[in-house]
Amino acid sequence: MPRKRSELEKAAGKLISAIQREWSDEAGLDCSAESEEVMHRSHDLLQAAKGGSFDSAVLGGSSIAQFLGDRWVEQHPHVISAIKELQRHIQIGRLS
């Protein structure tokens, strides 16, 4: 029986999906390498979310946008709602 993913993990997964869409749209372009690196960083966020709590050490005091790359996020506004959703679930976890 597969384990149930937490809301935090689901939010991290949605961020990965949003980033993958951006990366896919850029396939074959010079900028796709940067998007691929951002996608790898987003997987680090998913790993931090495993188990239903977020290890804030992965961010090192940065925001999610800073961790992914502020400039990249600004150039890819379609991911902002997923970032906000993940941030909301991180905050909920800290308050619990």
Rank of each mutant, 00 (worst) to 15 (best):
S42C: 09
S32D: 04
F54Q: 06
L95P: 01
A18H: 03
I92H: 09
E36P: 04
A57E: 12
D55P: 00
L8V: 05
E74T: 13
L59C: 04
Q20W: 05
E37L: 12
A48D: 07
H43L: 14
L29W: 06
A11E: 08
M1H: 15
V73A: 13
K4E: 15
S96A: 13
V58P: 00
Q20M: 09
S53A: 14
S96F: 06
C31L: 10
A82W: 07
V73C: 12
D44W: 11
S63L: 03
D70V: 14
L45T: 01
E7N: 12
P77I: 02
M39I: 05
S42A: 15
K14P: 05
L59K: 03
K14N: 14
Q87P: 07
S42N: 07
V58L: 00
Q87A: 15
V73Y: 01
S35V: 05
H40D: 15
K50F: 09
L95F: 10
D70S: 14
S56Q: 12
E22P: 01
M39L: 15
S53K: 12
Q75C: 03
S81E: 15
L59H: 02
Q47S: 13
F67L: 03
A18F: 03
A12R: 03
S96I: 07
I92D: 13
Q66R: 08
H43A: 15
S42R: 07
V38K: 02
E34N: 13
H43I: 10
E36G: 09
A12Y: 01
E74V: 08
K10H: 05
K50D: 08
D44A: 11
I80W: 06
Q20K: 07
L95E: 10
S62V: 00
L86C: 04
Q91W: 07
H76R: 09
E85K: 10
S35F: 02
C31K: 15
A48I: 06
I64A: 00
W23N: 07
G52E: 01
D30S: 13
G69F: 00
D44C: 14
A82G: 08
Q47Y: 08
K14H: 08
G52Q: 05
E9N: 07
E36A: 11
V73H: 03
E36C: 06
R21E: 15
L46G: 02
